[in-house]
Nucleic acid binder design. Structure first.
Length: 426
RNA sequence: GGAUAGGUGGGUGAGUGGCUGAAACCACCGGUUUGCUAAACCGACGUACGUUGUAAAGCGUACCGCGGGUUCGAAUCCCGCCCUAUCCGCCA
């Protein structure tokens, strides 16, 4: 969530940012309500502190009087303390409900887009930051989409997944399973080379962690919830990995922190069904290697560029046609200040598939996570967090299968061959 | 799952009702000494919110796992929960 301090001090800038996200002037008024509610909070806090201060002082006096044997005088003060206590209790209750209202409002406000983010309503308004200029792979007329190829080569089986679990849980098998494993290994190795520490986190998290990265309270429906133990299956490695630095005050020399993790990702995805979600395009469980960075605010946008180059390097090694989009305000995720999406060309489906999303969150996440660092002068500041997929497997596999199909079989990109142990799927 | 013992500041650890936001030691940071390093010595050293101040800094409040209760007053007493260790049971 946004920092109260920033909303108070830079209301105009935030308001302008929200309008970039396609917020109406009426919606932007929530900022004024937040500030007003915060005024209320401060006033109540002051009264409460004053009441407690007086009561503390009286308690001390009573203690002294008791010791010096002036019992009657002590007794006479107790009435006042009781009154103060009632007052304090009421104020505290008021304070709690003010806090809840304030938090509700704060949670409802998305991050303020970076100044370089274009305004816009939806995906139509995204800017192509880097286009694919070379020709797309030329496929034969009888080229097949990946779900047909998978059937032909026995790579994954969605119907079997229905039997075992339900729709959207693919069962990979044979060379399909090996390809999956090879990609994970490849992505992790690339991240390691780029200086990211490999993490293997739990795949279930508690509510505190889900709150920390903003899945709770608003996106609860996206996650699978194990109610018996009140744990959530992670929708992305971002959740456990970013929470590593929750409630931490880092020292300057700890920064930057770079971490990478492979995890399966579980998404309930209440969303749409149909042609666009066939095969591996959208599933409830998929594999992903995530990269996460914790950065000094001065360096976060440089770090974002670094992450872009990293993902781009992977694209090139996989020999996939890709483009990079700079998302417009209206299409950006709630928590992001700036997001680039990577899309690969799926030659048989003849459309772009999103395979990676790289974002800088500035202090939006760290504010909730309480991830701070001590700056040069010893002052405590919120760190910036960033993350990106490098990469999401399911859709990469889809593109890989489709783009590389030949009459002889499906060709494995050179960089991947030492991981798969085979050069072709036939 | 059962039994027992515990959860105090970055770490170790003292503290059983007011003098404790918390001893002592270690680490970290600043300084003195030193050719340099080390040692020794001196000093500073939690977080959040509120408030005064241009600022430096000061003041108030809260926090000793979490939540509630008893009391004029709680780290300390009581209740519930969570977690950790050990033993037993179960088990990949």
């Amino acid at each position: 969530m946004l920092q109260l301090k920033v909303i108070r001090e830079e209301k105009k800038r935030i308001a302008a940012g929200l309008r970039k996200r396609n917020w109406s002037p009426a919606q932007v008024k929530v900022l004024d309500r937040i500030i007003k509610k915060d005024d209320e909070r401060r006033a109540t806090q002051k009264s409460l502190d004053d009441a407690l201060a007086e009561s503390n002082q009286l308690a001390k006096q009573i203690g002294d009087l008791m010791k010096s044997g002036k019992k009657d005088e002590a007794e006479s003060l107790k009435g006042r303390v009781a009154d103060l206590k009632t007052l304090a209790k009421n104020l505290e209750e008021a304070q709690n409900s003010i806090r809840l209202e304030l938090d509700d409002m704060l949670y409802s406000v998305p991050n303020c887009p970076h100044k370089s983010v274009p305004a816009g309503k939806d995906a139509e308004d995204n800017k192509v930051a880097k286009d694919w200029t070379k020709p797309f792979p030329a496929l034969a007329d009888d080229a097949q989409p990946h779900w047909e190829l998978a059937k032909k080569h026995n790579l994954f089986d969605l119907e079997l997944g229905v039997k075992l679990t339900g729709a959207g849980f693919p069962v990979y098998r044979g060379k399909g399973a090996k390809l999956q494993r090879a990609l994970i290994q490849f992505f992790l190795d690339e991240a390691t080379k780029a200086g990211y520490e490999e993490i293997l986190p739990p795949h279930l998290v508690n509510a505190d962690s889900a709150r920390g990265t903003g899945q709770l309270p608003d996106k609860e429906a996206q996650m699978y919830h194990c109610t018996l133990d009140d744990l959530y299956l992670i929708p992305t490695a971002e959740v456990p990995v970013t929470n590593i630095v929750r409630d931490e005050i880092l020292s300057l020399k700890d920064l930057p922190i770079r971490m990478t993790a492979y995890t399966p990702c579980f998404r309930r995805e209440a969303g749409s069904y149909g042609a666009h979600v066939r095969g591996l395009n959208r599933v409830h469980q998929f594999d992903k290697v995530e990269i996460v960075r914790i950065e000094h605010p001065d360096n976060s946008y440089k770090a974002l560029q670094g992450m872009l180059r990293h993902v781009e390097g992977i694209m090139k090694k996989l020999e996939l046609p890709y483009r990079i989009l700079l998302l417009c305000g209206g299409d950006m995720g709630f928590a992001s200040a700036k997001t680039y999406d990577f899309e690969v060309w799926s030659a048989a489906q003849k459309r772009w598939l999103e395979v990676s999303s790289v974002s800088c969150f500035e202090t939006f996440q760290s504010n909730r996570l309480k991830t701070r660092f001590r700056d040069e002068s010893g002052k405590i500041e919120l760190a910036h967090t960033l993350n990106g997929s490098a990469m999401a497997l399911a859709r990469i596999v889809a593109a890989l299968l489709e783009n590389n199909q030949t009459p002889e079989g499906i060709r494995i990109p050179k960089a991947l061959q030492r991981y798969t142990g085979f050069k072709i799927i036939d």
